[in-house]
Amino acid sequence: MENASFPTSLYFVMYQNQGHNRYIFFTVGLTLYCAIISFNVIIPLVILRVKVLHQPMYLLISCLSFNSLYGTAGLFPRLLTDFLSDVHTISPPACYIQTFVVHTYASYEFTILTLMAYDRYVAICKPLQYHSIMTAKVLVSLITAALLFPVFSIGFAVFMSARHMLCGNELTKLYCSGWSINRLSCEDTTANNIIGLFVLVITVFLPMGFILYSYIRILIICQRRSSEFKAKAFHTCLPHIVTFVNYSTTVFCEIVTSRYEPGELPEVVTVVLSLEFLIIPPVLNPLIYGFKCPDIRREINCLFKKWR
């Protein structure tokens, strides 16, 4: 403990030896970020401007797009800057802020998908009670809870991590995360690891369990109904299921990758698996809902026709 200190800056070691490839990485990253911004602005814009789309399902789709903009804003500006910079350092406070943004984004995605699963469950399993259950007041309360819960749970975990003294300053990822910072601590991180696992369970696995339960209940109800009812239920649930499977897969890759020690996996594998959950869902989600939801697709076409 005598050699422990608070580094004035942390260093991203994975940006070393990029050479001229950094311009390629910057171009690809900038193109992706522009696409993410464009896709995730169009969806809420269409939903908010068309009154007929002011329904819980569509408003929750807008929340997914807003979350994609929030999460990628915590990654891409810093990532693109580091690609072009010769100095790849970040101050500890800024690193903890980025950690908070990235982790809350990850949790928000699951809490919003949980609300979407609940909305579909009520719509399919309790259709006559849907409008009395999913009122505007209830929807606002659910969204507020879905936003505040990750703020407090993840905020507490980040705060506990920030209290530890650091002995190193080399981060083995392209962005700051809880596990990469904890590896630099010169104190016992057992308590932090326990808190981190607990937060992981309540912000990721608990919502996942509820989502799976909701769709199992929907499947059971559909088995008792007509083929027409099944087809309609499948059509309305398919975009949500695809989004859920896509996001769960990318988060699983990130969780698995973060448990490996630096150097145990090829660098390119580490980079790809750790960035998937911050890139693939923000790109695919608006495309899925834009193409699979006829109402949204129709309004997008109308919007483009007006712009021509």
Results as ranks from 00 to 15, higher is better:
residue 287 L to F: 08
residue 299 E to Y: 11
residue 67 N to F: 06
residue 88 H to I: 02
residue 248 S to N: 09
residue 84 L to E: 07
residue 239 P to K: 01
residue 224 R to S: 09
residue 193 N to E: 13
residue 22 R to V: 02
residue 22 R to G: 09
residue 164 H to M: 05
residue 172 T to D: 04
residue 295 D to Q: 13
residue 290 G to S: 05
residue 248 S to P: 07
residue 31 T to L: 15
residue 216 I to T: 11
residue 240 H to R: 01
residue 232 K to G: 00
residue 306 K to I: 12
residue 69 L to N: 10
residue 261 E to A: 11
residue 41 V to K: 04
residue 213 Y to D: 03
residue 208 M to F: 04
residue 248 S to D: 08
residue 213 Y to R: 13
residue 156 F to G: 02
residue 118 Y to H: 07
residue 268 V to W: 15
residue 22 R to H: 06
residue 269 V to I: 15
residue 17 N to P: 07
residue 38 S to V: 06
residue 123 A to H: 04
residue 154 I to V: 15
residue 83 F to A: 03
residue 127 P to F: 00
residue 91 S to E: 13
residue 194 I to Y: 11
residue 8 T to S: 14
residue 163 R to T: 13
residue 193 N to L: 11
residue 125 C to A: 11
residue 53 L to F: 06
residue 75 L to Q: 03
residue 289 Y to V: 05
residue 258 S to H: 05
residue 203 T to H: 04
residue 122 V to A: 07
residue 257 T to H: 03
residue 7 P to F: 09
residue 71 G to T: 05
residue 113 L to F: 10
residue 4 A to K: 09
residue 79 L to T: 04
residue 100 F to I: 00
residue 226 S to K: 03
residue 8 T to E: 15
residue 243 T to D: 05
residue 101 V to A: 05
residue 185 S to Y: 09
residue 285 N to S: 11
residue 221 I to V: 11
residue 212 L to E: 02
residue 195 I to T: 09
residue 58 Y to E: 12
residue 213 Y to M: 14
residue 16 Q to W: 04
residue 89 T to R: 10
residue 220 I to Y: 02
residue 235 H to I: 04
residue 82 D to W: 09
residue 302 C to I: 05
residue 231 A to P: 00
residue 235 H to N: 08
residue 112 I to E: 08
residue 266 P to N: 08
residue 79 L to D: 05
residue 159 F to P: 00
residue 124 I to G: 01
residue 159 F to H: 12
residue 308 R to D: 08
residue 295 D to H: 07
residue 176 C to F: 02
residue 298 R to K: 13
residue 98 Q to S: 02
residue 182 N to Y: 03
residue 202 I to K: 06
residue 187 E to M: 13
residue 254 E to Y: 09
residue 138 V to M: 10
residue 163 R to P: 00
residue 42 I to T: 11
residue 149 F to Y: 04
residue 242 V to T: 08
residue 95 C to H: 13
residue 56 P to S: 09
residue 211 I to S: 15
residue 7 P to I: 08
